[in-house]
């Protein structure tokens, strides 16, 4: 009889590849191709008739909750949102299909990024069984067709290590900066404002916001203010003013999100489902 010890983390991950992360050509190539994966238009104006911006926020918030509860890899959620936006930019969709679409996008993103992907059955349970696994599989083909099978989209996460590597931060601070930046990236994905921004700008703004936020409590960076923004902007060839604006927007979204969370905490549980838990859990760890 064979005995199996399952105490180690069952998820296999590749070790960071220095050949990829320490080669500037990789960063340059990412910067070159990232725009190809942006949604083709701001679809609330030109494509969608039934779907409103607040509905995208609802479905995005739900997707984030599912990804967090299932402990998906960090990239899964932003990638799924990228699929959702690209699909909605091309296909007019009734709001009753939106949750199914969100589930399909998580299904695909999880399969692309994870060693043990989410199952169709599990995702259907998360829709309170309002859809069937068979429907999910059929719509998977529809979404694949409409996305032209281009699933390996560039996300802000692809830039994080490239940016962090070029900052003069002490190594022991990097993991905290990385964690906060990842939370900001997830936050940006829930907000349509950021849907048309290049992923490199969101990544750069998130790292900037993470350092600025942490700086208030402890000394995480030898660079501050304009010097930091200048350096960040140079790393990803982002315009300095755009970057500043992006970083400010991220901070606003964070503030709103925190306020929302406090309201939810204040016992207003009777609020309708629309506003339920619109705060990514990790944000609760952040002190401003």
């Amino acid at each position: 009889m064979e005995l199996l010890c399952c105490e180690v983390d069952p998820v296999r991950r590749a070790v960071p590849d220095a050949n990829l992360l320490h080669d500037d050509r990789v960063l340059q190539n990412l910067l070159t191709i990232e725009e190809r994966y942006l949604p083709q238009c701001s679809y609330f104006k030109c494509v969608q008739k039934d779907i409103q911006p607040y509905m995208r926020r609802m479905v995005a918030t739900w997707m984030l909750e599912v990804c967090e509860e299932q402990k998906c890899e960090e990239e899964v959620f932003p990638l799924a949102i990228n699929y959702l936006d690209r699909f909605l930019a091309g296909v007019p969709t009734p709001k009753t299909h939106l949750q199914l679409l969100g589930a399909v996008c998580m299904f695909l993103a999880s399969k692309l990024k994870e060693t043990i992907p989410l199952t169709a059955e599990k995702l259907c349970i998360y829709t309170d069984n309002s859809i069937k696994p068979q429907e999910l599989l059929e719509w998977e083909l529809v979404v694949l067709g409409k996305l032209k099978w281009n699933l390996a989209a560039v996300t802000p996460h692809d830039f994080i290590e490239h940016i962090l590597r070029k900052l003069p931060q002490p190594n022991e601070k990097l993991s905290l900066i990385r964690k906060h930046a990842q939370t900001f990236i997830a936050l940006c994905a829930t907000d349509f404002k950021f849907a048309m921004y290049p992923p490199s700008m969101i990544a750069t703004g998130s790292v900037g916001a993470a350092i600025c936020g942490l700086q208030q409590d402890e000394d995480v960076s030898s660079l501050t203010g304009d010097a930091l923004v200048d350096l960040l902007a140079r790393i990803t060839n982002t315009d300095v003013d755009c970057l500043k604006a992006c970083q400010e927007q991220i901070e606003v979204v964070l503030l709103n999100s925190l306020q929302q969370y406090r309201q939810d905490q204040d016992g207003s549980k009777s609020e309708d489902e629309l506003d339920q838990a619109s705060t990514p859990t990790d944000v609760r760890d952040i002190d401003l």
């Binding site: 509905m55 739900w62 709001k95 949750q99 349970i125 998360y126 309170d128 339920q276």
Partner: peptide, 11 residues
């Protein structure tokens, strides 16, 4: 799980 919910009514 609070995440198990239907967002936009019946499908």
């Amino acid at each position: 799980s609070k995440a198990c919910r239907r967002l936009f009514g019946p499908v």
